[in-house]
Design a protein around this nucleic acid. Structure first.
Length: 454
RNA sequence: GACCCCAUCGUCUAGCGGUUAGGACACCAGCCUUUCACGUUGGUAACACGGGUUCGAUUCCCGUUGGGGUCGCCA
């Protein structure tokens, strides 16, 4: 083993604050984070806010919040969305807008070496004319010859005439200054990399190891851009997805554990993630599988976390979970946890626990027929005296009432369900009645019995 | 237009010269069942095409086609 100093992995995620976090960007961040955690390295967040036309603290906050939501903690980088604000780490500033002196210094060094020249007020880099070969961690050896456009003039601007440095330059300078050892980024940067390598050579420093990961495409194979549904990470946050599920699904896009593993906790993903298993082909985003994955994580989510994730969605539906006893809320949510695919489905599924307004719609009301009235009444009277008022006892009681009436349990279940919840679908009837409690259950049954006259 | 990357069921993928080409999602059918969902059993479904190399190609090489990316004083 070499010393920690020489072998320490330093990777970074360097997004531009565009106002949203692209799902592909989130996956890039995830791969870098996983690699850092797997190797015991350092994960750095750097904000590429060189284009001030589209920068705002709000846009930066979207990135920070998205990463936090996914659970991708960074070891170095900003701790607030303010470029001039606090940060963590010794290699800052972590906002490019705060690093102009550094860029100027390197531009000056290049000028002294004759690697650049001035033309029309801008600083141009003398690009290498020969083909450059790159050893990509994912794609292997790649040799790139100049395109016809570049053959005409391969040089490119590194500092604009207004004095602002451009992406290729700042990206390289920052990776150099921050001691980045591995760059895992989208394949859309593969062609750019040859410029970056040339820049590193001119700067007299060895480039980091590059690995270009395949892109995430739309379901139909087209390029996923900001307008496409599901392209923004915020969608998953707003639609009630479990962050661990998003991480799990995303890691399976462009990386493979090489066995049949699908559902994995993050700790296991970290343990197994490594660069050789990164795939080379673009992957399409499959929303149906994302939903399935979400269900798999949702069903075993600890109740406290489920309650936390569900609270804003209930609030949006006009229900304040905080107004109810925590144990009651968690017991209620537990009965629905394995029944919905997304947390957004929870309020409609569980609203009857938190409101007495359970008037059925016309379709559900059709279950409240006069023919079932005697059986429902008989059950109601049995429940009044039932001890204990538990799900098992309620089940036995309902089955007895059904048998007495000469009907199948299911024929009694539906009117009772509509009476208690106002809906045809919902959690297990016996469990929900037990949680509702005797008093409320009887009150709702009485209300329904009155309606069962025609 | 030029350059670069890529190509196994509809989708995500396993496979690294000889397999009945495996798994997952989705879909279909049966079973289970208090609705819904789950679970369970089974099923439909793939090596883009053409040349090589080889005793033998999904696998290696070349080409074609197709998809994606890049060639900015955007990032």
């Amino acid at each position: 083993m070499s010393s920690p100093e020489s072998s320490a992995v330093r990777v970074r995620f360097a997004p531009s604050p565009t106002g949203y976090l692209h799902i592909g960007g989130a996956r890039t961040a995830l791969f870098n984070w996983l690699y850092a955690r797997h190797r015991g390295g350092t994960f750095i967040l750097r904000i590429e806010d060189t284009d001030d036309a589209r920068n705002s603290e709000q846009a930066i906050a979207v990135i920070l919040e998205g990463l936090k939501w996914l659970g991708l903690d960074w070891d170095e980088g900003p701790t607030a969305a303010n470029p001039a604000g606090p940060s963590r780490g010794e290699r800052g500033p972590y906002f490019q807008s705060q690093r102009h002196a550094i860029y100027r210094r390197h531009a000056e060094a290049l000028r002294e070496r004759g690697a650049v020249y001035e033309k029309e007020g801008a600083l141009w880099f003398r690009m290498e004319r020969e083909a450059i070969t790159l050893h990509d961690l994912v794609c292997g050896e790649v040799t790139r010859t100049l395109t016809d456009r570049e053959a005409a003039d391969p040089d490119f601007v590194i500092v604009r005439s207004d004095g602002k440095p451009v992406f290729h330059f700042v990206n390289v300078v920052d990776d150099l200054e921050m001691g980045i050892t591995h760059v895992l980024r989208g394949e859309d940067h593969l062609s750019n990399t040859f410029k970056h390598v040339a820049l590193f050579r001119a700067l007299g420093a060895p480039p980091p190891q590059y690995g270009h990961i395949p892109l995430i495409l739309n379901q139909d194979g087209s390029k996923m851009s900001k307008r496409d549904t599901g392209a923004s990470l915020e969608t998953y946050l707003k639609d009630g997805f479990v962050p661990e599920a998003v991480v799990n699904y995303l890691c399976l896009l462009g990386w493979s554990p090489k066995d049949d593993s699908q559902v994995m906790p993050v700790t296991e993903i970290i343990r197994r993630f490594d660069v050789p298993q990164i795939l080379r082909a673009n992957a399409r985003f499959d929303f149906a599988k994302m939903q399935w994955m979400n269900y798999e994580h949702l069903r075993c989510l600890p109740l406290a976390q489920l309650r936390e994730l569900a609270t804003p969605h209930f609030r949006a539906a006009g229900i304040e979970l905080g107004a109810f006893d925590t144990a009651y809320v968690e017991a209620a949510l537990h009965t629905a946890q394995e029944k919905v695919r997304q947390i957004t489905g929870l309020p409609a599924f569980c609203r009857f626990y938190f409101t007495d307004d359970v008037a059925p719609d016309t379709e559900a009301a059709a279950a409240l027929t006069s023919a079932r009235r005697p059986a429902v009444k008989a059950l109601r009277d049995a429940l009044e005296k039932l001890e204990p008022f538990s799900d098992a006892a309620i089940e036995a009681s309902l089955k007895a009432a059904a048998a007495e009436a000469g009907i199948k349990p299911r024929d009694l279940v539906q009117p009772v369900r509509v009476a208690c919840t106002g809906a045809l679908v919902g959690p297990s009837l016996y469990h929900l009645m037990a949680i509702l409690g005797r008093e409320r259950t009887l009150r709702r049954l009485d209300g329904a019995i009155k309606r069962m006259v025609s």
